[in-house]
Nucleic acid binder design. Structure first.
Lengths: 208, 208, 208, 208
DNA sequence: GATGAATGAGAATTCATTCAT
DNA sequence: CATGAATGAATTCTCATTCAT
């Protein structure tokens, strides 16, 4: 029991350390980009020795990947939950859009990194760096696709395009608004009202 | 006359060399990312000596910037022309979407780099590196905005959102489709029929 | 205590390393000149990796500057002490001349570098690189000047020239003898008897 | 005859070109130091192509050496002539000192280079770079030595030191004054009155 | 004979990674 | 087990020199 507690305490301590390292690295990567951050900088910011970093992560790329996975996990969880809530598909989409906005304001560093590296993925780091990340993002997209599909089945939506295409579209419109905000946070905001984004798809542009 | 011809020939020769260097660099940057390509690699691929590279470009960043500017110029020109053609706003938007697709298939390397660096810009390289590039992209976006605005003025479009928001949306939906194609060129294609994309905005999703 | 000893030992170790690097660099610079010595050569001679050199010195120029400062410190200290000893001004000057000779034989490499770079200073490296060095050398010269001035005040010397001019003269006569020795160590020697040099000035300088 | 004239004209033209190159190089070397001047810079300043430089000089070092030789020639000639004039040894030394001062003001660039490289010689460039230069300077020193020797023989001077030592001393006192002027041209001047320098040696040197 | 574009060896510097303490 | 000093391969950039035109 004491043994177990001790281990568990150690385990917890280790996780906290790991988290501190990832947090420091995220901050730096997000601000300066992967290649403009050295392991020594990360170690210093995290208040560990470099060697300790290497006890936790095989190498720089692994550290980077771990951040991406941790953050994607978080993102996946948050977005997934958002799409759980809501009585109908419209409400679910509204939650999707709204939650992406919340993510922006809550975790700017993550979002910056996400847009720099996920969208630009396979260019900046070795291609296909991470299947786990792809898997989670695909899962999310499929979830969104399914919402559209179900909305169409329920005659809530007209089938103006394939569900997968609609999901792709919504996802990217959100990204566009987010990036605009990242570029000039002072002038723009991610639409407070999610319907601003949804209307673009929902309303039907062509006049009567 | 001979003098003039000689000079012109030299000039042409220099431009061809410059072009070859930019092409080699584009290819490599696009495949591996800025930081994973060395000047020696570029030189080798372009079949010049490193020193020669430095005769044409002040340093690696300048070379990179030159690619981006050259390609943005090209992109701007092509897209601008696309939006000139078309009798009404619908036709112009159709041309916009279609032409982005053409650009994809014609210049894969460019597009890869565009999505890796333009979209992820301000992270990977010194921010604001490229005022000229921003200017051109903004110009393009404004052009698109104006098409939406004019369509609304002419009662061709309902004002379901601000023109600038509509432009942002369309731009990013296109990007989304392009990136999907870049990831799995075999499974997906950029929609051959531009109306696939346009319908998402045009048709009005909500059932009757 | 153990802590204190450990730290002190490390400190001592670091100083020893720094000293070894400076010694290796001094040897090479003195033999081949600043620009004909590469950091890799220095590292190899000092039996460290290049990277280690850069842990101790910001860059090549800093390494060079550090040598100059270290050596100027040493020179300043030695010469200063020489001029402390001696009951009257004559004896002090004798000590000055003698000690410059001792410096020659003890630290040939230093003296070579001193004459190559201190005397040729402002040509070979960025001018004004070394305010600290200038300061120390000026201090030394002023000290020498003051000896002459005081000798004149005490009627030990006739005022055949301004004290500053006499100091300049003595300093340079010494340098001349030293350089002659450096050029052909086998044929010449720095005068064993300092009066050989002093007489040149003294024989007219001594009052009465 | 025509042939001869043509050749002679060509010869003259070549010499003028060579002179222009040396002048440009002297200016640059003197200002920036040997290693901070590139062959392209020299070519540009001299208004020739680099290739042409290499038609005249085997390589950079040869060009440098040629400057030193040309300038030493000039220096040798001027100083030699100075020591020709003067009825007695005192007058000759006065001319020596005065002429070194004239050289300073007339050819600052030369003097800078002279002091940077001649005095620091064998350090900054490959040692023993040039026997011709050594020969001329030795000749000059011997000439000076001979003046002292002859003055002693004529009982004009007391033998307070070996003639060679006196020559060495005078030479270096002059150098000292020149260098002081080079460092702060505004505050100091090479003594307008050569007796300022000579007195330092003379006041004891002149026989009772 | 002049030209200057092209060359590529070589130099300074950085930084991910290791390993003795 | 943490540490951080030491490592050295890799990278960017320069410049003396050559040679086709």
């Amino acid at each position: 029991m004491t043994q177990g507690e001790k281990l568990s305490r150690r385990e917890r301590e280790r996780l906290r350390q790991r988290h501190d390292m990832l947090a420091a690295a995220l901050e730096l990567f997000s601000r300066n980009g992967y290649h403009n951050v050295s392991m020594n900088e990360i170690a210093e910011k995290a208040e560990f020795a470099v060697g300790t970093l290497y006890k936790f992560f095989k190498n720089k790329e692994d550290l980077y990947k771990s951040i991406m996975i941790e953050q994607t996990d978080w993102f996946h969880k948050v977005m997934d939950k958002a799409m759980d809530d809501g009585d109908d598909e419209i409400e679910k989409l509204r939650n999707y859009v709204r939650t992406r906005g919340v993510a922006v304001t809550e975790k700017e560093a993550v979002v910056r990194l996400y847009h720099a590296e996920i969208r630009g993925r396979s260019f900046n780091l070795r291609a296909g760096l991470d299947d786990e990340i792809s898997r989670q993002l695909n899962e999310l997209r499929e979830r969104l696709t399914e919402i559209f599909a179900s909305g169409i089945r329920n005659n809530l939506f007209r089938k103006i395009a394939e569900p997968a295409q609609l999901a792709l579209a919504l996802e990217n419109i959100c990204s566009g608004f987010i990036m605009r905000w990242l570029e000039k946070p002072e002038n723009n905001k991610y639409p407070e009202d999610p319907d601003v984004i949804l209307n673009i798809i929902f309303q039907g542009l062509i006049a009567g």
